[in-house]
Amino acid sequence: MLGFIARRLLQSIFVMLTVSLLAFALFRFVGDPVAVMVGQETSIEDQERLRDELGLNDPVITQYTRFLGDLATGNFGFSYRTRQPIGEMILDRMPATLELGIVSLLISLIVGIPAGIYTALRSDGVLSNAILITTLIGVSIPTFVIGIFLIYLFGVQLGWLPTFGRGGVVEIGWWKTSFLTIDGLKALILPAITLGVYQLTLTMRLVRAEMQDVLNTDFITFATARGIDYRSIHYRHALRNSMIPVITIIGLQFGGIIAFSIVTESVFQWPGMGLLFLDSIKFVDVPVMATYLVLIALIFVIINLIVDILYFVIDPRVRLKPEAG
């Protein structure tokens, strides 16, 4: 157990080091930090002095370790565009993205898992085929198109729901939540559906595939032969065994949702991290790009680590095969 976790941890640290190296390279070699910070009329000597003060003339290794230290202590530097500290900017916008992501994930699981089970059990039914075709179309419609049409239908034509922004927010400490106002909850509906549709189709298809795989295994055949009734076979034996990989799916999906919220946030002008990142790309605001990169990778790595450990705890088969990880 400990060896497994240690190995996974090492791997995660390696991933984070590589990503931070990437972020450092981005920060250091894309554009000239000094040229961005000073005005046109600053003399070459002043620029050189600034370069020295910032430590940009130090050996690259020294700079990288300093960069790592800064990252670890939460000192992400300043945005080229707004001159604000990046840590604050991101912390300010993170709740919006996380709340949107959590609601989308819930939508995707609450609809996706039952639909996946149903289509696996009744694989020839009319409704199953209808669901399958719908999901194929769901995978194929770009997120932004879904968003636009939801806005058009529910926002403009019917006028039921707001089409941009977060609505009213309540501050709990630094965390601004839109869960506590009617206004905020209403504003959450359309973006969450937009973001959730793609993940929903993925969940459904994966649950279906997993369930079908389990239904084809020997122990299910054996249970059938023993005369156990189908309800019990399906829900107690098959479902339980197919839920294990679903944990992985949930984990991976949350990372995907956070990344894809860039698109949804852009369509709905949702004031989250994704929108911040998109602006930083357009204005080549390198420090913000680099920080966001590290942050997303960190979220991914932590989720993967948790998923792997959960897997290990829940599924005895993984424990029996020490080399499988």
């Binding site: 390696f14 860039i262 698109v263 790009m289």
Partner: peptide
């Protein structure tokens, strides 16, 4: 290991980053 790193960055993020880097360079 490189693939692991790549997998921890979703497609849209990679694409946006490469585009951003190209803009900067």
């Amino acid at each position: 290991r490189i693939a692991d790193v790549q997998l921890s960055l979703p497609a849209i993020l990679t694409a946006l980053l490469v585009d951003g880097i190209a803009r900067g360079i």
